[in-house]
Simulated scan of single mutants.
Amino acid sequence: MTVDPTFEQVTQNVEPNYVEASRSHDPSNNMKRTDPFQFGSRFLEKGDDVFEFNAWDHVEPDDEFKAFAQTQYAKQRETRVSDFDRRRFNMEPAKWWDKFYKNNTANFFKDRKWLRQEFPILAEVTQKDAGPKVVLEIGAGAGNTAFPLLANNENEHLKVHACDFSKYAVKVMRESEHYNEKYMSADVWDAAAVPSEESDSLPPGLTEGSVDVVILIFIFSALAPNQWDHAIRNIYRLLKPGGRVLFRDYGRGDLAQVRFKKGRYMTENFYVRGDGTRVYFFEKDQLVDMWGTWSAKDGLQIPIGDEASAEASVEEAQPAEEPSAEAKQSAIDNGAFEVLNMGVDRRLIVNRGTKQKMYRCWMQGNFVKRGGPAIETATEPAQ
């Protein structure tokens, strides 16, 4: 019998377990990490020259950057997106991503070969004896996750469904020399689609309870907050009991957020880029609550305040009431997903030439749909 974790256990014990701190640039202690949620081991220690290396792991922003960030946030709120532009960017997000991919044909994102280490289950499903496995990548873009996954595949029974709501991105995947219909299907699909008389809101070729693994890499940040519930519901419907969600996205305070200038702020933590695409920056506890308390019956349980409607102006929005501890406990008890891990990947990137420091922050989660045994994963990351 499996005992579900309490709300306190989920929120307090989601930090990754770390091996003993090491200096990756020290040849005498340069061991490969064994915990996928360790996020590197180049620790910045007292007395170090910060500009000795290009990057450091687990570095909290210094007071100067924090003060700068708060000043930037205040300026952003003062010059938010107009009501007209907010509606324009939220009405047809696929149009802006189509333009993005058309304008970036020659410089798409690099292949995400690192995913097999961050999420060892992706190595498991591609093993020769893994058996029939279905992987759904949502927001597949130009195939920078799907194609490396297939390049390492030895499983004759693997099927990868790569979906994106940009028609142009799907066209790029289908025309790639790496596209193999035996193992892969690329289709247009909106993760936040709502069932209608014409559509059941699920991707082509997939039915309820048919997916083993869902990959969400920088996808939820592209959705408006009022779309999160629809997206989680679709993912829940698609996953088998025991199926996994692999999540990585932007964290609150990331340099990309702090750098936004005037006219880009839509609602708190939610912005529109210069190319018309949208981006949200998450808090760790927010994601734990979102996935840990969502239920098929009641949907999203976290209070999201003025983020509840991407169409509402800040003045119109009303702050949501924080639920009681008892309400949170009840929500976690009835939640559809178990939060296996939720880590904060903080890095300090430096420009050694200009002596510039850049603080980056990403969120990484691993969730399992309750109701069945979780898919087994290796104890060691893929080599």
Score class of each variant (00 low, 15 high):
Asn334Phe: 09
Phe220Arg: 04
Lys113Asn: 04
Ala55Tyr: 13
Arg248Cys: 08
Ala193Val: 00
Phe282Pro: 05
Ala374Glu: 01
Tyr101Gly: 11
Phe218Glu: 05
Met358Asn: 14
Lys133Asp: 08
Arg252Ile: 15
Arg244Ser: 09
Asp83Tyr: 06
Pro241Trp: 06
Trp189Phe: 11
Gly274Asn: 15
Arg259Met: 14
Phe43Ser: 12
Ser22Asp: 08
Asn341Gln: 07
Ala146Tyr: 09
Val170Trp: 11
Ala224Thr: 07
Arg33Asp: 07
Gly305Trp: 10
Asn103Cys: 05
Tyr18Thr: 13
Asp229His: 06
Asp26Ile: 03
Glu321Arg: 08
Arg360Ile: 07
Leu206His: 06
Val272Ala: 13
Leu202Thr: 06
Asp229Pro: 00
Ser82Ile: 03
Asn153Thr: 09
Met358Asp: 10
Arg80Glu: 02
Asp98Leu: 11
Leu149Phe: 03
Trp291Phe: 01
Thr126Gly: 00
Ser210Gln: 12
His161Cys: 09
Trp114Ser: 01
Ala140Ile: 14
Gly242Met: 04
Leu122Lys: 00
Val50Gly: 09
Lys171Pro: 00
Met266Asp: 03
Gly131Gln: 06
Ile232Met: 12
Arg80Thr: 00
Thr71Gln: 12
Asn152Ser: 12
Val339Lys: 05
Lys261Ala: 14
Asp62Thr: 01
Ser324Trp: 04
Gln227Ala: 04
Thr2Pro: 12
Trp96Asp: 07
Glu380Lys: 10
Asp190Leu: 07
Asp200Lys: 05
Lys167His: 15
Glu315Gly: 01
Arg77Leu: 01
Ala222Gly: 10
